[in-house]
Amino acid sequence: MADTRKIPFTILRFNPETDTKHRFDTFIVDVLPGMTVLEGLHQIKARHDATLAWRYSCRMGVCGSCGMLINGRATLACNTQILDVSPIAIAIAPLPNFPIIKDLVPDLDSMFQKHREIKPWIIRENSIEQNTAKGEFYQSPEQLVEYLQFSYCIKCGCCMAACPTMATDAQYLGPQPLAQAYRYEADSRDQGFNARKPVLDRDSGLFSCHYGSECSVVCPKGVDPAKAIQLMKRRMLLDLFHLYRKKNAELCPDQGKPSAQDGS
């Protein structure tokens, strides 16, 4: 086909069964305009090496499975077009700062563990009121925007791979968990500031971020973790001087108002 280009894909390989160190293999891929890196990997698996391993699911930038380092930038293979990256050569490696399970599959366990540590759920002081609510916790559209941006995180790990502090400090919480801590703190329904404070305020916690800002540049969903982290720092510093006040959403008892399902 006239528009087809032959582009070499150099891919980091590691098989835990046989290898002690990773190596690089090169495959020639027939690239058509609009073809994604993920489609290139499928072509390699079909035509050249069926043992090539990577993680993917949705193919549309929603599931966050196919995060990898493509020509030096952490991004999703499914929404990265080959010719947008380079018409000459493509180099692919698994996300750095994570151990490799096999080939392009990183072990994201450490990120999920840190994510759990920041208690990523709505915390209310009155758990009985929360669990057996007799109405809704009212939230205005303006209050929704305060955290909506940060709730789009798909946990792909690209921000953790791009973070220079993560490169040298394995204990550092990292941009993904820290941004999610702010996502809940900014939620007017949440009252978990004091519950999360010991995790955020520890060594290798919130204040280990020195704004390399690459997390926000690489985020495929526009979550902007660097912004969330700085806004969380502001709240922590205000709290240090006893100046932090948060207006929480209150329970609005159901008084027979029409629901959204009524269409009115």
Partner: peptide, 17 residues
């Protein structure tokens, strides 16, 4: 689990990408 650790270390400050 047998893995290959890819933490960039100090070179990650400048040579990460």
């Amino acid at each position: 689990k047998k893995t290959d650790d890819r933490r960039l270390g100090i070179k990650g400050w400048a040579l990460g990408g």
